[in-house]
C-alpha cells in the first residue's frame, strides 16, 4: 500500500533578481510516496493558493527527465541525492517520514536567480552559439551514408550528446565551472568526421566563451557525480587536449590536425 509522508520544507523564496531572498518553512503533510518531487511542490502551491499566498516558482516541463528544464538543489545536492536522476524523476519514496528538506535554486554567478527557484541559464546558449554546431546549411548535405562514422566514435559521440543542458554540473561545482557541459558538446561534435573541419576553431571559441561566464575547473569531479545523464569526466580531458592543440598550432599553416 502507498505510504504517506509528513515533511517539513525549507524553500528559497526570492521576489525577483534584485531581492536578497530568504527561506520559508512549509509543512508538507500527507504526501504520497508515489509522487514525484515536483508533484509534491505542486501540492504545496495548491495549498498556498488556497491560503491566498503567492505560489513558489520553479522551472519544469517534460517531467520525464529529458528536457533539462527542471533544476533545484535538494538538501544541498543538485537534483537531489538519487544518482543519475533529474528532479522531475525523483520520487518521494526516496525520502523518510519526518524529513526536513531544504530546497534552493541552482547557485552560480552565471545563473542569476529570476524568481524563487528559477534561474537564468542562458549562458549555456551563449557557449553553444560560440561554436557548438557544424556549419552545414540546409540542403548542402550529401548522402548520409557517404561519410561512414566508426561505430565506437558514433557511440561515444552519443554518450556526450546525451547532455540535457540542465546545469547541475555547474551547480555542484565548488568553482561554478561549466567544463562538463562544454566538453560534452565538444566531444559530441569533435569525435565524428562531420565535425572535423571546425574542430579546433570550435574548441577555442567555446572554451573562451565558457571562461567569460564560469569559474575554472580544479578537478573535483562533483559535476560528474551530480550529472543526471552521467556524462564522463573523460570528455573534459579530451577538451583540454584539443584546447592546447588549438592554442599551440598556427591553424593557417597546420592544416587539418
Amino acid at each position: 500500500m502507498t505510504q504517506e509522508l509528513n515533511l517539513t520544507l525549507q524553500v528559497w523564496r526570492q521576489d525577483g533578481s534584485s531581492d536578497p531572498g530568504h527561506f520559508e518553512t512549509y509543512a508538507a503533510n500527507g504526501i504520497s510516496e508515489d509522487m514525484s518531487f515536483l508533484e509534491m511542490l505542486d501540492i504545496i502551491n495548491e495549498q498556498l493558493i488556497e491560503d491566498e499566498q503567492v505560489p513558489i516558482e520553479f522551472d519544469h516541463d517534460c517531467r520525464e527527465g529529458i528536457c533539462g528544464t527542471c533544476s533545484l538543489m535538494i538538501n544541498g545536492q543538485a537534483h537531489g541525492h538519487e544518482k543519475a536522476t533529474t528532479t522531475c524523476q525523483l520520487h518521494m519514496r526516496k525520502f523518510k517520514d519526518g524529513d526536513t528538506i531544504v530546497v534552493e535554486p541552482f547557485r552560480a554567478r552565471a545563473f542569476p536567480v529570476v524568481r524563487d527557484l528559477v534561474v537564468d541559464r542562458s549562458s549555456f546558449d551563449r557557449i553553444i552559439e560560440a561554436g557548438g554546431y557544424i556549419s552545414i546549411n540546409t540542403g548542402a548535405a550529401s548522402d548520409a551514408n557517404l561519410t561512414p562514422v566508426p561505430k565506437e566514435a558514433a557511440d561515444t559521440s552519443f554518450d556526450a550528446a546525451a547532455c540535457i543542458g540542465c546545469g547541475a554540473c555547474v551547480a555542484a561545482c565548488p568553482n561554478s565551472a561549466a567544463q562538463l557541459f562544454t566538453s560534452a558538446k565538444l566531444a559530441h561534435l569533435n569525435l565524428i568526421p562531420q565535425g572535423q573541419s571546425q574542430r579546433f576553431e570550435r574548441t577555442e571559441t567555446m572554451v573562451d566563451t565558457m571562461e567569460t561566464f564560469f569559474g575554472s575547473c580544479t578537478n573535483h569531479g562533483e559535476c560528474h557525480e551530480a550529472c543526471p545523464k552521467e556524462i564522463s569526466l573523460d570528455f573534459i580531458a579530451f577538451m583540454n587536449r584539443d584546447y592546447v592543440k588549438a592554442k599551440v598550432k598556427n591553424r593557417k599553416l597546420a592544416g587539418q590536425t
Binding site: Y133, I134, I136, G139, A141, A144, P148, D155, Q194
Partner: peptide, 22 residues
C-alpha cells in the same frame, strides 16, 4: 531522405552498424 542527410551532416549521432553506416 533529405532530412536524414541533413541531420547526419549536422552531427546527429544516429545508430550505426559496425561498418560505420546508418
Amino acid at each position: 531522405v533529405n532530412i536524414i542527410d541533413q541531420a547526419a551532416a549536422q552531427g546527429v549521432p544516429f545508430a550505426r552498424e559496425y561498418g560505420g553506416l546508418l
